[in-house]
């Protein structure tokens, strides 16, 4: 635990039932080296997101209840579960993409490197600048391939060596070789898989520290999906990655840690909840919770 987790709000345990996941289980050192901070190599990856008893509401409807988990630096964390279980809602609350939903309300706290993401003096544009996001459906801008990638760096004033930055981002997204001769062409002419990799390139061009991926391969064919998964491996370590996926094999292939969400009855209405969060091998090999076991063995969902 190197990040100071000083909760600024008081935390009363809520009355409703919730599942607390013991997130201080030691992280296995399976070759994951943490990022270096101030030149010191640290062995236990730093906590990037510390979600403390987070509940999310849309108007009167509760979408998510009491999620507590910690996401560590440089790892790939997968959020899995049946549809409607609130995993995407949770992901979108990590970079405040839900703010534009008028009736959105959040309880509990999400700390990013110890800073409350929903704190009073937080700038949501800064949040998104540091915590990038790639969406389910590829959404390239109706601009050229080059401009898609160069747009955000230009906004941020990262204009020196822009061409290099664009090339680096496209290489990082394993797209450079396919598009280097047609950077001026419209991005809308790319295939779905290429478009999604362009969106990833666009996101990493401004060097965020976290990448949130919301089912990035669900709209793609198996080959393009394979390319995206390969890409995730290559991005691992440079970025902290949180990925929502429907596809359990995908989670098993790419993720270090996996969180299983499900719909639980809270009173009358089903509400999303975190059931179990552990190393990916544990979740898929010997899950502790019977509901997780049922889901990963395909008995439900």
């Amino acid at each position: 635990m190197s990040a100071g987790i000083d909760s600024t709000r008081g935390q009363d345990p809520p009355a409703r039932s919730r599942i607390r996941i013991e997130s201080d289980t030691p992280v296995p050192q399976t070759g994951i080296t943490g990022p270096s901070v101030n030149g010191h190599r640290i062995t236990a990856p730093e906590v990037v997101f510390d979600s403390q008893d987070v509940s999310i509401f849309y108007g009167a409807k509760q979408a998510l209840a009491g999620v507590t988990l910690r996401i560590r630096s440089g790892q790939i964390t997968a959020l899995i579960g049946p549809s409607g279980c609130g995993k995407t809602t949770f992901l979108r609350s990590l970079n405040r993409m839900n703010d534009s939903v008028p009736s959105f309300r959040i309880e509990g706290q999400i700390l990013y490197h110890g800073h409350d993401i929903y704190g009073g003096n937080v700038d949501q544009v800064e949040v998104r600048r540091r915590i990038g996001m790639v969406f389910q459906k590829p959404n390239p801008f109706p601009k050229s391939i080059y401009d898609n990638v160069a747009w955000a760096p230009r906004n941020l004033g990262l204009k020196s060596e822009l061409d290099d930055r664009v090339e680096k981002a496209l290489r990082g997204a394993a797209l450079w070789d396919e598009v280097k001769d047609r950077l001026k062409d419209s991005a809308l002419g790319l295939s779905g898989g290429q478009q999604q990799r362009l969106c990833i390139a666009r996101a990493i061009a401004i060097e965020p520290s976290v990448l949130l991926l919301d089912e990035p391969a669900s709209a793609l064919d198996p080959i393009a999906t394979g390319a995206i998964e390969e890409l995730m491996h290559s991005l691992k370590g440079r970025f902290t990655i949180v990925i929502v996926t429907h596809n359990m094999q995908q989670a098993a292939r790419v993720a270090d840690r996996t969180a299983f969400f499900s719909l639980e009855m809270s009173g009358e209405k089903p509400t999303g909840a975190l059931i179990e969060f552990d190393d990916t091998e544990t979740i898929f090999g010997r899950p502790r919770d019977p509901r997780t076991r049922d889901y990963v063995t395909g008995r439900f969902g």
């Binding site: 990040a3 901070v37 730093e46 990037v48 630096s73 990013y112 490197h113 110890g114 800073h115 993401i117 704190g119 003096n121 937080v122 700038d123 544009v125 800064e126 949040v127 600048r129 540091r130 906004n155 941020l156 004033g157 990262l158 401004i206 060097e207 520290s209």
Partner: peptide, 19 residues
């Protein structure tokens, strides 16, 4: 121009001007 990941989530770089 790339902020320290652990810095507070207040505007960095040119963001204050852009805002």
């Amino acid at each position: 121009g790339i902020p320290d990941p652990a810095a507070p989530l207040t505007p960095t770089g040119n963001l204050r001007r852009r805002q």
